[in-house]
Simulated scan of single mutants.
Amino acid sequence: MSSHIHSLKVGDSLEVKGPIPKYPLAANQHKQIAMVAGGTGITPMLQIVNKLLSDPADKTKLTLVFANVSEQDILLKDQLDALTKAHGDRFKVQYVLDKPADAKAFAAQGGVVGFVTKDLLAKKLPFSAKDENVKVFVCGPPGFVAAISGSKAPDYSQGELAGALKDLGFEKDQVFKF
């Protein structure tokens, strides 16, 4: 998209659509929310985090598992770290990197080296599929989403639940794919 925008000349027009709400989220709607994001999949997750953390009446606990290739790929890291510092009782982030510059240093700082797997989610999600009033949001590249929760259907509806979350016992209504 950026190449297209850069190719536009003064006076050209560009149509923009949105915002298009995907999931109606209210304060205290869920006791806990886990978000599993890959790369630019952070976008809707940050909207959830900002919405709920900015509401003093909301008590939802939020956990973000954020996967990227390297440190340079972690979008909005400073903002996420600031939110964690300010709301550590309600918001936690787990960074996962495939190829950190220094794997030992990254792991020593609490990061996970590797990929988001069923075993990793079993360790890092703050709740299990058996807990009540919990939700898992998933967003990222198509292969990432397929591995975590199964792909969306061809008509872009939620599709069937598959992948790591299904293997962990989650039900379709506990998971939302952006």
Rank of each mutant, 00 (worst) to 15 (best):
Q109L: 10
G41W: 08
A67S: 15
E160W: 00
C139H: 02
A105G: 00
A129D: 08
V49L: 07
P142D: 10
A164I: 04
V116C: 10
L14W: 14
L168A: 09
P44I: 00
N133Y: 11
G11M: 10
G11W: 12
A82G: 04
P19D: 07
G159Y: 06
A86I: 02
P21T: 08
T63M: 12
A86L: 12
L161I: 05
P44E: 01
G163M: 13
T40C: 14
M45Q: 12
A122N: 12
K17G: 05
A146L: 13
L53N: 10
V65T: 09
L125F: 05
T43M: 00
A107H: 04
D12P: 14
V138H: 00
K104M: 07
T84S: 14
K124D: 00
F127E: 07
E171M: 06
I74D: 01
K130H: 09
I5H: 08
K9H: 14
Q174C: 05
E71H: 07
D131S: 08
K85E: 15
A108C: 07
G114P: 12
D102L: 00
A129K: 08
P19L: 08
M35L: 13
D167G: 12
G88H: 06
K172F: 01
L76R: 03
S2Q: 15
A67T: 10
D81K: 04
K92L: 00
D89F: 01
G110S: 09
D102G: 00
P141M: 06
G143C: 08
A57R: 15
F66D: 01
K166Q: 14
A153Q: 01
K61V: 04
I148D: 06
L125S: 02
K172D: 14
L46Q: 00
T40Y: 11
E171W: 05
M45L: 05
F106W: 08
S3D: 14
K177H: 01
K135S: 07
I20P: 08
G18L: 05
V136W: 09
A57I: 06
P24M: 01
K61W: 01
S149W: 03
P56W: 07
K135C: 11
Q174S: 01
F137I: 03
G111P: 07
P24S: 10
K104V: 11
V93E: 08
I33N: 11
G150W: 08
I5D: 11
K59T: 11
E171I: 04
M1L: 11
D73K: 00
L53G: 10
Q109R: 15
I20E: 14
S2N: 13
Q32R: 15
H6M: 11
L14R: 14
S3R: 15
E15M: 11
K172T: 10
L62E: 01
L52P: 06
Q174P: 06
K99V: 00
A86M: 12
T40D: 05
D58V: 03
S54F: 00
P142N: 09
F91A: 04
A153K: 03
H6E: 14
A37H: 13
L168F: 12
L168I: 10
I20D: 07
N133D: 14
V116R: 06
D173Y: 03
D89L: 00
S157N: 13
N133S: 13
Q94I: 11
P126E: 10
G11R: 13
I5P: 05
Q174M: 07
G38N: 03
L120H: 04
G150Y: 08
A26R: 15
K77L: 05
A129N: 07
K61S: 10
V116F: 06
